[in-house]
């Protein structure tokens, strides 16, 4: 018992704390920079605690870029991608988990292969299609394109969750008088709630963090999400570090706050299921 205690402390000191510092370091820099002036940011040696803390950056960022629009657009991308992934991914994963059909295995492998292409490879081609269709500056197009890239991964995740639910539960529901769709909605979906939540969170984050397609397909200020909006603080000759970090911090805080509000609901749902 003693020995285990001792080992726990040693591993915490040798591994846990350094690891935490590495992970948290960028956030510390982000917070600290958001309260500095541009001069102080470029000082060498750098300061951790701002010498003259200022809230000026927050006012400036708000005035320089349409921050509210950016937040709204990022949120729409997150929600839109989550919606698309759920509507398209859940039925696809359900079919792959429940039915044995010719080509099932090759299809699963094909899905995996699509994950191996970096999005940058196709962005030019997709851009030309989007231009040809006259759909530039359209958030729905960005959400759809981004979703098409994360869909394969989400289907894989969901197939695993659905396969873990015994098919007899659905069969029992069908014998009791349910249709297959009814049995899926009332049995398999609630029972794979943790999986749906995980995939939903993943899809939302993917949309919230979407950058490449937004940068390519959107030029209108009011249509830009946060990622692209903040990117404009990086110009060819100068990086507005103080503004960039302030915007990033706000984006992070909002995302975290968003998850804290839904987290309670999500974990309660997960607990109810996992106690089975």
């Amino acid at each position: 018992m003693q020995r285990i205690q001792w080992f726990k402390w040693l591993s915490l000191v040798l591994y846990g704390i350094p690891m935490l510092l590495v992970l948290v370091f960028p956030f510390i820099v982000m917070v600290s920079t958001s309260f500095k002036t541009l001069e102080e940011v470029s000082q060498i040696p750098p300061t951790f605690i701002p010498r003259n803390p200022t809230l000026e950056n927050y006012r400036e960022v708000w005035n320089i870029i349409p921050l509210a629009d950016h937040f709204r657009n990022s949120f729409l991308l997150g929600v839109g991608e989550t919606f698309l992934i759920m509507v398209l991914g859940v039925p696809a994963a359900y079919a792959l988990a429940r039915f044995r059909f010719a080509g099932r295995q090759p299809y699963l492998i094909f899905l995996l292969v699509t994950q191996m292409f970096p999005a940058i490879v196709v962005v030019l081609g997709v851009f030309r299609v989007v231009v040809a269709l006259g759909l530039l500056n359209n958030l729905a197009v960005v959400a759809t394109t981004a979703a098409s890239f994360s869909l394969a991964f989400c289907i894989w995740l969901l197939v695993g969750y659905f396969s873990a639910i015994p098919p007899e539960i659905e069969e029992a529901a069908m014998m009791d008088g349910d249709s297959r769709l009814g049995a899926m909605i009332k049995m398999t979906l609630p029972l794979s709630w943790p999986g749906l939540v995980a995939v939903g969170v993943f899809a939302f984050m993917d949309g919230w963090n979407e950058f490449l397609f937004s940068l390519t397909f959107i030029s209108n200020d009011e249509m830009m999400p946060l990622t692209v909006g903040l990117f404009r603080f990086i110009s060819r000759f100068q990086i507005q570090w103080h503004h960039l970090m302030t915007g990033s911090l706000l984006a992070t805080i909002v995302a975290v706050a968003l998850f804290m509000t839904v987290q309670d609901k999500l974990t309660r749902g997960m607990l109810a299921i996992s106690e089975k």
């Binding site: 007899e168 539960i169 069908m174 249709s179």
Partner: peptide
């Protein structure tokens, strides 16, 4: 005919109760 239209009840080996 779909199972629900056959008016049959079934008992499964692993009970298949609805856990939720």
């Amino acid at each position: 005919l779909a199972p629900r239209h056959r008016d049959i009840a079934m008992v499964f080996q692993n009970y298949a109760l609805y856990p939720h």
